[in-house]
């Protein structure tokens, strides 16, 4: 479990990349912006979705129902749960809340055959927003991201520009991309390169 005393000292993969992210932002009707949301708490949760005791204990810990439909997200306040598999979820919370989330889940799930692991240090989160966000992402990803196929509140694990990540479409229309820390700089630079064409259009 993370040591809260060290929270202030940790580094995010893109914390020294601010200048490039700001420079790459495109304004206007075809605008697109990329930023990092660092240090979001992330907990891998595994258990039997058909077991009412498991579902009930998670509801008691989180205050909302786990999403049981494939590739969907349940959100309540600043905590969300992403479906990753028929018996696996990613619980995401505000920065520095991973210890609290682990304690709550381990508390209500005590004695059950489940898995609760803090994976906060595994991935960072990129947020792609703006009218051209989907267009940029479509260059990196083979999934059908059009609104009729990929709706807010959905997520997907897939290949993204030769790496793998988790895509989540928020209710605001912004895309969140959960990517391994070690691939984050590569993926950010790849997306910034993909965003450049919209800046040319904006300048014309």
């Amino acid at each position: 479990m993370a040591n809260p005393a060290l929270f202030g000292r940790r580094r995010s993969p893109l914390q020294d990349h601010d200048a490039a992210l700001v420079r790459g932002a495109v304004a206007g009707p075809r605008g697109v912006t990329l930023k990092e949301i660092p240090h979001l708490a992330q907990i891998t949760l595994r258990g039997d979705a058909d077991d009412a005791d498991f579902i009930g204990a998670v509801r008691a810990a989180l205050g909302f129902e786990l999403p049981l439909a494939a590739n969907t997200v349940a959100v309540s306040g600043d905590v969300s749960a992403l479906w990753l598999g028929p018996d696996e979820w990613l619980v995401v919370g505000a920065p520095d809340s991973e210890t609290d989330l682990s304690i709550r889940l381990n508390g209500t799930l005590k004695g059950q055959h489940v898995l609760v692991v803090d994976v906060t240090a595994n991935r960072t989160v990129l947020e792609l927003s703006g009218p051209s966000g989907r267009g940029v992402l479509e260059k990196a990803c083979g999934l059908d991201l059009r609104p009729r196929a990929f709706k807010p509140g959905q997520c997907a694990q897939t290949n993204l520009a030769r790496t793998v990540g988790i895509l989540e479409l928020g209710q605001s229309g912004a895309w969140r991309i959960y990517v391994r820390n070690s691939f984050a700089l590569y993926l950010a630079d790849w997306l910034l390169d993909a965003m450049a064409e919209y800046a040319i259009d904006a300048a014309l």
């Binding site: 494939a70 083979g142 999934l143 997907a156 694990q157 897939t158």
Partner: peptide
């Protein structure tokens, strides 16, 4: 069976 249609590369 869970995620629906995806590319073979996945």
């Amino acid at each position: 069976p869970w995620c629906g249609e995806r590319d073979e590369t996945e």
